[in-house]
Design a protein around this nucleic acid. Structure first.
Lengths: 299, 299
DNA sequence: GTCATTCTCTGACTCTAGTCAGAGATCAAT
DNA sequence: ATTGATCTCTGACTAGAGTCAGAGAATGAC
């Protein structure tokens, strides 16, 4: 059996960490509440919403979720009310008693973490914290899922909204982009067979996105590329870019272009690292100052 | 609610790691075998032994363990035979079929780890590995348990055996220590009210030990101090030393002495960092070259 | 040899966790 | 208004995980 050092270390960590920290989730275990119920209560406290949203987030069977919610409701911990937007759905919120219970879970979980680090010296604690923070970022980056979605889907809208918010703040300062017009155009240009739009999600939340459209036969353009601020430095941008290049290749493009703005310095650095070369202005985008292209047939 | 940064990072890590890597132990999940059974099979493969040893290691109910073993036995995966040393106990070993199944669990678990790191670039993988290895060491160090045990107990014997093996190898080179005589003396000197012997264990295995004996009223001596080679650099020695000083204080000592050998350079450095000062030879131990003392009433 | 203890096993339980197949309400599109 | 899809809930399950109280054999201390 061949194993790489990195695989061994990950496995060793998993084994010893679960053994010592216990089934980690059991930090939620408390009086009168089984693990599943407590976990659900906790998630509701973190982000209340519809039962449907909880179901997709926690990947629960609808019958199972319904029963768990019923129990929380009977205990007076959550309130269940029809969602005004769509009365098939139910909005789930914590009651004051539920909030109190949630705080208790928080305390319990924090206490557990505190006990874990307590025996360590200050210097060791600092080392552990740095190591876990680094591991956290990388694991989260590794488990991101990249999927092609319709530009009109809710996920895509949310991602593009973040894109425009950031581009507006960093380039324009006043937010004068015509967002609606851009979205309307995307709905046609960023779908097969002319293009595609992909969103990277982490735990169901969009953390990055990008689109490919066709300039002319064999020539594509990458648009709407955005990476969430808290995810910078995890190599996500480069990975997304590679993915988009694959998409462009699948669309039959031999070369991809992209434009960007001088204010987006990290992005420009990344394009250069990824093999893009500067080219002449190829469109009349008033917000673009730098233009790049990359040959997809080489390498 | 007050939280420290280190506690927050640990909690955040726990949350995201369990969420993404799933219930980690489920890496064992495979065909025709529930999680608990697979975990047990895996542990038997890692370290076969008596049912009793497995029970303490995995903290299982004896009835539950018995049933799990029965199932593994029925499936032809483990062999159960009376322990010749103590016929109440049963020795558990993997059969060839069990070993095959164990290999499969290994493969499965490695595959899982491989998938986790696969999306990362080589540099990121290296960063993740370094972070997890560091976290692993520190978490293991943080969860060590230090307990006072009788010098004659099996745990103490094992620890002292390691101590003599190492001291013999590093100082003497030939192993001419009179181990039996030393152990016989320990059995009297390292127990209350004259002294104590403590063992630090990690997952039930001894990883460090040390004893305190009485030289004269108010004056103690630290003996048999040992830290397992793979645990160096985790601050375990300093922690054990502090623990032994507390023990000495409880025994009524105002000062503790200790002797050591010039060959044990790390130990000497640690004693100095921990506030020990060099003193004149206070005994006729032929293997000792350096002598230290520390006042326990100050600070 | 006696007696308390230790180790394992069995039977009888409880409680979670989770699945599956509908039923009934609501919505979006035509 | 009809139709097909979506969302939630209920009932009826299965299986896993674990607890608890003994019973019977073996052991160690006296």
């Amino acid at each position: 059996m061949t194993t790489s050092p990195s695989v061994d270390v990950v496995r060793r960590f998993n084994r010893s960490y679960t053994q010592r920290v216990g089934v980690l989730e059991e930090s939620f275990l408390g009086p009168d509440m089984p693990l599943g119920t407590a976990r659900l209560l906790y998630e509701i406290g973190v982000a209340p919403g519809t039962a449907h949203a909880l179901r997709t987030r926690l990947e629960l069977d609808s019958g199972y979720l319904s029963r768990l919610l019923r129990r929380l409701q009977d205990d007076g911990l959550v309130s269940v009310a029809p969602d005004p937007d769509d009365r098939r759905r139910r909005r789930i919120d914590l009651t004051p008693a539920g909030r109190e219970r949630w705080d208790e879970l928080e305390r319990r979980s924090a206490e557990r973490a505190r006990r874990l680090v307590a025996p360590l010296s200050d210097r060791q604690q600092a080392r552990l914290v740095a190591a876990l923070a680094e591991a956290d970022l990388l694991v989260r980056a590794a488990t991101i899922e990249i999927a092609t979605v319709p530009p009109g889907s809710e996920l895509a809208r949310r991602a593009v909204a973040e894109y425009f918010a950031e581009v507006g703040a960093r380039i324009d300062g006043t937010g004068t982009f015509d967002v609606d017009a851009a979205l309307a155009a995307d709905a046609h240009r960023l779908v097969a067979p002319h293009g595609a739009f992909v969103v990277a999600t982490s735990a169901g939340e969009p953390v990055a996105c990008g689109g490919v459209q066709t300039l002319e036969d064999g020539s594509g353009e990458i648009k709407r590329m955005w990476v969430d601020g808290s995810w910078r430095g995890a190599g996500l941008g480069a990975r997304l870019l590679r993915h988009l290049e694959d998409v462009a290749r699948d669309l039959g493009h031999a070369v991809v272009h992209l434009d960007t703005n001088a204010a987006l310095t990290e992005a420009i650095a990344m394009y250069e690292r990824s093999g893009y070369r500067r080219v002449e202005r190829y469109n009349d985008n008033p917000h673009a100052t730098h233009f790049f292209a990359k040959d997809l047939t080489a390498g």
